[in-house]
Design a protein around this nucleic acid. Structure first.
Lengths: 325, 325
DNA sequence: GTGAAAGCGCTAACAC
DNA sequence: GTGTTAGCGCTTTCAC
């Protein structure tokens, strides 16, 4: 079923069909109607590829996230979608389920399907390099090690420092952290946290850092671990809000009042944090800007426009105090 | 920058370049390396369109949602993505921001960019028909009026009846509803609710149904309205969980204990409902199945495979009791 | 107003 | 093992 079939059915040439379908000016009204009728009759549908070949206009950006149900990634995706829409770009969303094999399979396909890739990856830069032949890659929240790649940086150091200062100002000295357990080494956020507490002369003995999978349940379990090691903890800083919300729930189960018995501060500043009770204090990020910047940069790299400078590719965090601390 | 440039640069034919790039067998190792080097050097990137034109098409499905940040649509999208991945399909996500003009703009573009469209639309079937030339359309939670369209039906009548029976069993007689205010006419869920309360001989005077925008804040405002009209209300059923969660928050502000002073039941059964305090009781839907079924049906319609029967295109709801009622 | 010809960039056949 | 030929389906010249 091609334009040719429609042409034959309507008794005109292929070009005339094209004119009718694309609302071009130079065509007789009745001819146009006849062509349109024939096209509908036959259920004709132009090929996206043949069109794209001739009019390569729409650039498509692939957005890779480990879990769209995690509200952090939802917010990032939302920002990416909006930025893409504003620039007339398309976004194909891939959810890798946090699985290395899924991610590989995704990358293998993605290279032939989109013009650029942005998002969160578990694979090494070398792997990414190998499977994304030549197209721009924008990593979010991770430093690119391959010159071809670009990255959106998250600078939360000041925000974490604010958070710790706030806790210390309220008299807290026994502060724990619920870190993310995704990688063997400590997260960058843990390093910020360590430096911040050190500035207040607080020593962090082992056991003050519990590690959690990136989920609400994981956050709850991590708090339980921390409480087992240090029942006298009075405040916790969490790797992110999802983990912090798990801690909130677990604290309730332990009969701890928040913030009276236990102060909790998260990271990310998700909208979700305003729905829980008590509302979550958080080192807040403009999550939608993360997605939007990534799309903007990818978009520029694809079209060959001047890319954003490193200084413009940073999203900073700031403490948003609500009720939990 | 085409395959031709690479061929010239490497001193081979275009076909040999193609062989090297696509890992074909019949090619000399050193030639292959030379081609690969040349390609990398030149920053060559094959055209998706030219490839698509020649190779078996990957079908792409467009998923349209009014607001990806609304966790209901996130869950639907997640189900759609997973189903698509399982079948080797691509999903392009479009967020229309609940705006009629945005939706129209989206539809105008989408017709030329994807092979099928699924999702939630505000426009009439006639508009959709006009702007989606010939491609399959699958409406979620809405009855299609155009023969070309397909739909995923939500049957929550039994679930709502269960919910009302539960409330009545607990002694509630003054039950209000927080309906969605998206359309002028009452929602289908309101009709289910009306029938259910009528079965228990409860008359619904005006003012027992408050209408709310589909947001947490909207749910809060609607509860305030309802309380103003009927301060003696003891239970509310909400159009969906997002609205119900707003009601939960508003109840807290009014100093009402849930469920002691006010019982609350939502609709959808979102994961979010387990994060709030008290946990939300809800007429639960398999939201991810909604997205998955839509993709499955779209996929079949595109390839011409036998479509799912109407009986298979229904998602039923059932009461999930947690803490709020 | 309409049609014929010329590609867009790529790969599957078939030569050599 | 490598090159040549022939399209994939569409739109854009440029004739008529």
């Amino acid at each position: 079923m091609t334009i040719h079939d429609v042409a034959r059915s309507a008794g005109v040439s292929r070009q005339t069909v094209s004119r009718a379908l694309n609302d071009k000016a130079e065509i007789d009204g009745s001819t146009k109607q006849r062509v349109l009728d024939a096209a509908r009759e036959l259920g004709y549908r132009p090929s996206r590829f043949a069109r794209g070949l001739v009019r390569p206009e729409t650039t498509t950006i692939g957005l890779v996230v480990p879990d769209l149900l995690n509200p952090f990634f939802t917010e990032v995706a939302s920002g990416a979608l909006e930025a893409a829409r504003a620039r007339g770009r398309h976004v194909v969303v891939y959810d890798t389920a946090g699985d290395a094999e899924q991610e590989l399979a995704t990358l293998r396909v993605i290279g032939t399907q989109v013009d650029a890739v942005v998002g969160y990856f578990g694979r090494s830069d070398e792997d990414l390099d190998r499977f994304t032949p030549g197209i721009p890659v924008v990593l979010i929240g991770r430093e690119p090690r391959v010159p071809r790649f670009s990255g959106i940086a998250i600078d939360g150091e000041d925000g974490v420092r604010e958070a710790v200062a706030h806790l210390v100002g309220r008299g807290h000295r026994r502060i724990g952290m619920l870190d993310h357990d995704g990688r063997p080494e400590p997260s960058v956020r843990q390093q910020w946290f360590r430096r911040a507490v050190a500035e207040h002369g607080i020593a962090l003995a082992p056991g003050w850092i519990a590690r959690a999978p990136q989920s609400v349940d994981g956050g709850g379990a991590a708090l339980a671990t921390l409480l087992a090691a240090h029942p006298d903890v009075t405040a916790v800083f969490a790797f992110n809000d999802v983990i912090a919300i798990g801690a909130l729930r677990e604290a309730r189960r332990f009969g701890l009042r928040v913030p009276a018995d236990l102060a909790v501060i998260g990271f990310d500043g998700l909208a979700l944090g305003t729905l829980v009770e008590p509302e979550l204090s958080s080192v807040a990020l403009d999550t939608r800007a993360l997605g939007a910047l990534a799309v903007e940069q990818a978009s520029r790299l694809v079209t060959g426009a001047a890319p954003l400078e490193p200084g413009e590719l940073i999203v900073r965090a700031a403490l948003h105090l609500r009720e939990s601390a």
